[in-house]
Design a protein around this nucleic acid. Structure first.
Lengths: 127, 127
DNA sequence: ACAGTATATACTAAATATTGCATACAACAA
DNA sequence: TTGTTGTATGCAATATTTAGTATATACTGT
């Protein structure tokens, strides 16, 4: 894949945030929506864009669609995620906060026994 | 500066090529035009975009405008240029070829004693 | 078969980015 | 001053991206 396609993708900070979250583990659409506080339509479209680029992949679990980084993961993407996690800018701080919120979300789901894609929360540190 | 602004900038492969060339040393507009085979208007506009983002800076030498990476250089930009120089994709190969062509251009200029911004070719490995 | 939940897509309007032409400006040389 | 070269910019046309509404699909439970 061309580098510029990856850049165009991560030039949108919402998409960057999604990729950052997915690098930590798979998530279903509704939880991504909740973490990013974004409408269903928009989330679905963002995911479709990245799926088309083969940066992410999805599988169905009942009515849920669970998304994860496509393996083998794109090295340019990983390179940039690693860089941004250490860097200082408001977007970078957001990426950190997102990961913390992901942790809280998973905790809440397991604690409350909330519905979640089949066994994913327990077995894969998600969703 | 926000990361997404850098990404939006380098998502355009022409701008990426310009930045790659400038990382090797300063160049004036007409030589950038020649190396990228692009119209004067377009080159000028691309440079204006990157100057506004403070990724590059310029100074005048007679009628020439000489552009270089703004120092301190943007670390995210450098990180990506370094990555792409080692990577395998058609855009990455283009970056390599551009650097070779830059070498040939400088050689030709010094050999032929072509006009060039004052002393730049001799003293700074350019232009 | 029907209703409900989760997700995707078609279509449209609005916002942004890109392109090219014409023109302006800045320095220089005659 | 005038002409020339190198470069920048205003403007209009075009292309691309984004955002929202409505609707469709896929699965589940009854």
């Amino acid at each position: 894949m061309e580098a510029s396609e990856v850049y165009k993708c991560i030039a949108d900070s919402q998409r960057l945030r999604i990729l950052n979250l997915l690098e930590a583990g798979p998530l279903c659409v509704c939880h991504l929506q909740e973490l990013l506080k974004v409408s269903q339509v928009k989330m679905s479209k963002q995911l479709a864009i990245m799926k088309q680029l083969k940066l992410i992949e999805s599988h169905r679990e009942g009515t849920w669609m669970v998304y994860s980084l496509q393996s083998p993961t794109n090295p340019l993407l990983i390179c940039n995620l690693n860089y941004l996690r250490e860097a200082e800018c408001s977007e970078c701080n957001q990426l950190q906060r997102d990961l913390l919120n992901r942790g809280k979300l998973i905790l809440r789901i397991t604690d409350n026994g909330e519905d979640c894609p089949n066994g994913v929360c327990q077995t894969q540190g998600c969703c």
